[in-house]
Every structure is written in C-alpha cells, then in structure tokens.
Nucleic acid binder design. Structure first.
Lengths: 195, 195
DNA sequence: GCAGTTGCCTAAAAGCTTTAGGCATGCGCA
DNA sequence: TGCGCATGCCTAAAGCTTTTAGGCAACTGC
C-alpha cells in the first residue's frame, strides 16, 4: 500500500514541537501527530513510548534550543549587557514559540531534568551574576529570583495579562530589566529574620 | 432507585477544587467528579455546561479565595510589612492548595477575567505600592514586576525547582521579599532607551 | 534474488466527553 | 391526603484519545 513515511523519534519530536506552537502544548496528542504524518496512530508507538514520553522529548528539545540561543547571545557580553541579552532571548523564544516554551515547564523527573539543557541554562544565569559581585549564599538567591522574574513575566504576558492596557509590555519589560540591574548592583544585605 | 444526591453547581465546583488539590488541576475530569458523588457522568451536565465550564468555575473560586485571604492579610499593614504579608499569603495559598493555585492560571476569556476576583487582587498589589512612592508610569511597571516575581517564584517552587539544593526555599523567599522592598525604595529612573 | 529486520497496519479494549431522551422523585398546591 | 408537574439522575450512544498485540510487506544487506 502506501510507501513508508520514514517516521523517526527525531522527526516526531520536531513535528510535535511545531504542533505545540500551533495548537498549544497541552493539545499535543499522539493522534493529531499521526494525522499530520498521514499515518495510523499505532504506528507512532514504535518510536515513542507513550504520550508522556513524547511530551518529555519535546520539552528536552525546547530546553536545548533555549540554552543554545542563550549561549549565543551571551558570547562576548557581560554585566547589564549580558543580563539584557539573556532576558530578551528568553522572552523572545517564548513569544515566537509559545508551545515549545510551555514545554519547558513540563515537569521532568529528577534524573531527566538533571541531564537536560536546563542545567546549562541555569549555569548561564549564574555566570551573568559574576558581573555583579555578590557573596555566595546571596548569589543563589539572586539566581532564583532572576529565574522567577523571567518565567513569571513571560507566563503572564503569554496569558494575555499585560495586553489591552497601557503602558505596553515592551516598555515594562525594558524597565524590569533596568530594575533587575539596579537591584543586583545594590543587593540588600540580610536584615533581621522575619518573625 | 438511589435517592437524589443533591448535586449543585456550587457543590460540584467546591468538590472540583478539592479534587484539583488532590490530583492536580489538569487531572480534574467530569468523570472523576461523578465517581466521587457516586453518580453517573451525564448527571453532571445539568449543572455544568462542560469540562471547560467546570474548570472556569474552579478558577473563579480560587481567585476569590486568594483575593479574600490577601485582603485580610493586608488589613492594617503598610510598606514592607504589607508587601511581605501579601507575598506570604500568595505563596502559602499555592503550597496549601496547589490544584487551586494552578486553577488561578487557567486562561479565562476577557469578560470573565474582568469580572473575576483577579482584578481585586491586582488592585491590592497597586495599593501596596502606595507605601513606596513611585511616579505613575513606573507604578504600573512595578505592579507587573511584583506579579511576575510572585507567580514565577511560586511556579518554580511548586515544580520542584528549588528543592534538593541549598539554601532552602524558605530562606530565598525571605531574601526575595527583602530585595523587592529594597528595589521599590530605590526604583531606578528610566535610562536611555535600549538600541 | 533471498533472508531478515523494521515499519506501518489492522484490531481491539478501555477511558473521557457530550448529547438525547426517559422515568421517577419530591415539591407545591388543592 | 393526594395530584400534577418540574427537576434530577439515569440509560443509551457516538466520537475522540490512549495503548497493546499481532501481522504483512517493504526495504537492507548479502
């Protein structure tokens, strides 16, 4: 009958990522993917363990892409320049590839996460902080805070939180980066413990 | 046969919220809810339009609970005290009710969102800023940044991002609140536009 | 040109969603 | 107390997704 289509775990993962950007990561389904390759659903199960496995692979792909883009953007930059470039890459990736971005939030089991490009991305965040010198325990707090701001901002923006109200998101983003730079330059020393 | 159970949109919504906290918001299903009431699935469709409607209602319930808790925490506080209390309510709610918290991120259509308790919550964020005086355009940027940090931090924490590594999340959270307070006290003035 | 592997298929079971239509329970009213 | 009617929950059914088992045919390499 029909010739072989040439399915591959690789191709399925890529197509899954594109599908995610089109219809949303949550709507990525083995069935829909099969439809796109004009192939019966069961055929995919030779290349992908199950739906969860497919999503995990898409997530790993997205994390790797994001880390690569960030590494490229960071090359030759330091200080606020590096911070802004890193932040922009993150936000732009999310806006250009909302489905893939959602995939980066897919909960991975600890070993998978530890082997993912996510750790590379985290190391880059820490590298940026070398431009501002913070003592060690504070550095970790700052890394976590940067991650929170970037992820939080992009999530809310993608959810439509900042649209349809002035000032526009572009401007706020720029001010947020300014604020983070200022904050890292004047990182507060620990006060008395809260009650 | 079996007596009437007394289903209500209200009761279904509440039970749905509990279910979300137990198994995760994404796993909330009309079928599972029916099982919990020991009732046939179709019976729920008299009280709830469809699965999406159910999730919307759970989302609205969670937003209202969160806004109520925040309002209570804010009463009689100002400045950093208010900021910390507001932040803690947000984080504690998310940790005690992860499913409901996830529900607060459920995308609502614009009119529904505008009529939700979400706007009340946003207004409270703005009220906190009255303790730090920022000029108007900057105030909006700051509101968005606070929202981003809170949401981002809590999301990452819930996803397990900060567990299994020192220092513990409790400490970072406290430092993040310190940092936000410091930042609001020294909010940077707009620099030259980025190229 | 043959053997063997691999790839895609048919078949089937199980679960979730949603709609249509039916019976009876339990309420209001006489 | 008993009647009528509305409402609440049920049966039935179709359509979709996931996942497994097993089969045939098409490529690969010899």
């Amino acid at each position: 009958m029909a010739a072989r289509v040439g399915l591959t775990t690789e191709r399925l993962t890529r197509a899954g990522a594109e599908l995610a950007d089109e219809v949303g990561f949550a709507q990525v389904t083995v069935s829909e993917l099969a439809r796109r390759f004009d192939v019966k659903v069961a055929s995919l199960y030779s290349h992908v363990k199950n739906s969860h496995d497919l999503k995990t692979r898409i997530s790993l792909l997205a994390l790797a892409e994001l880390a690569d883009l960030a590494a490229e953007a960071l090359a030759g930059r330091a200080g606020k320049d590096a911070l802004a470039a890193f932040a922009d890459v993150y936000r732009d990736y999310a806006r250009e590839h909302p489905g893939r971005y959602a995939a980066t939030q897919f909960p991975l089991d600890p070993e998978t996460a530890a082997a993912s490009a996510g750790v590379r991305h985290a190391q880059m965040t820490r590298a940026i902080l070398r431009g501002y010198d913070l003592p060690e325990p504070e550095q970790t707090h700052a890394v976590r805070m940067l991650g929170s701001v970037f992820h939080g901002y992009v999530s809310l923006e993608l959810a439509g939180g900042f649209s349809h109200s002035a000032p526009d998101s572009e401007e706020t983003w720029s001010r947020v980066v300014d604020a983070l730079d200022a904050l890292l330059c004047n990182w507060p020393t620990p006060g008395p413990p809260r009650p």
